[in-house]
């Protein structure tokens, strides 16, 4: 059981959830994740840690509402409890002084890449942050990012930011202008894939935080296996960060989308039950 300290909508369909988890808060490092279940019927969902406060004993994640379990999470109120909250899981991101680093986030990954950017800044890097959104009203945490970034960019496909670019173009433009030593990318699979593709020709090492489907999240079930450099890896214990140039993306895409129909069926069932 873990108590919800805060749950708020950051932007449409994206929610912040802060949970009382003192043990987890004491241990977590950038790039790690937690697994939680919204109720006893729910799925075990992995969520990258977006922030934590060891003194308060709280851990924050950002969720994108997609299937039944994330819908349920988005309805939880302060003071309610989730039956399962476990972590921190996975290997932390590699943080050290690389020189100039580029942190790319999109959607829930904006929250998730924040502690990575912060730690990289603390390690003495020049940090460039690039957030990808469809439209300006989908951006959040800009002020938090500006605090830990030397430069801050947004790629958006609306007129507000005066740019109609998707992330790979912006990344290509950025790496054309200067030497970037390392790229970190968190977000939907397509975003991190295009990010890795954008840096491939220049050979800039690009770490992507993979989000395959998981079940137990502790190395027991093998649901999250991905092929990296021709070898099978388990994202939950070997990752979630991997070298994006070595990931078998097509396999990951097909494994990720496989339960779409089940998700729709599950959501219909739950909505009918919950709202009728």
């Amino acid at each position: 059981m873990a108590k919800i300290l805060r749950r708020e909508r950051l932007v449409p369909n994206v929610h912040l959830i802060e949970v009382e988890a003192p043990r987890v808060a004491k241990k977590c490092q950038p790039g790690q994740f937690v697994i939680l279940m919204p109720d006893e019927y729910g799925e075990r969902i992995p969520l990258t840690i977006a922030d934590w406060d060891p003194e308060k004993g709280s851990v924050t994640s950002v969720i994108l509402v997609v299937g039944t379990s994330t819908h349920k999470l988005s309805l939880l109120q302060e003071g309610e409890e989730v039956p399962v909250y476990v972590g921190p899981l996975g290997k932390p991101s590699e943080i050290k002084k690389f020189g100039t680093v580029l942190c790319v986030g999109g959607c829930f990954g904006i929250g998730a890449v924040y502690p990575v950017a912060r730690a990289l800044k603390e390690a003495g890097n020049k940090v460039i942050s690039l957030m990808d959104v469809k439209a300006n009203y989908l951006l959040y945490w800009e002020d938090k990012f500006r605090e830990v970034s030397d430069e801050f960019y947004v790629s958006a496909r609306d007129s507000y930011y005066n740019c109609k670019e998707f992330v790979p173009h912006t990344v290509k433009n950025l790496i054309k202008k200067r030497k970037i030593d390392r790229v970190f990318s968190i977000g939907c699979t397509y975003l991190i894939y295009t990010c890795a593709e954008a840096t491939r020709s220049k050979g800039i090492k690009t770490m992507v935080s993979l989000n395959p489907i998981m079940v137990d999240g502790t190395g027991m079930c093998g649901a999250c296996r991905v092929t990296v450099d021709g070898k099978t890896k388990f994202a939950c214990v070997d990752g979630p960060d991997f070298d994006g140039h070595l990931v078998d993306w097509q396999e990951l895409f097909s494994r990720r989308k496989f339960y779409f129909n089940d998700e729709i069926q599950s959501l219909n069932y739950w909505e009918k039950k919950e709202f009728s």
Partner: peptide, 28 residues
């Protein structure tokens, strides 16, 4: 690693622990 190929651990965990045999009452 094709879709549809499970480890026994994953298959049994989905069905037993997560109770996928009662899907969609259970979400997994």
């Amino acid at each position: 690693n094709l879709v549809g190929i499970y480890s026994a651990n994953e298959y049994l965990t989905r069905v037993n622990l997560m109770r996928a045999y009662e899907f969609p009452k259970y979400d997994t």
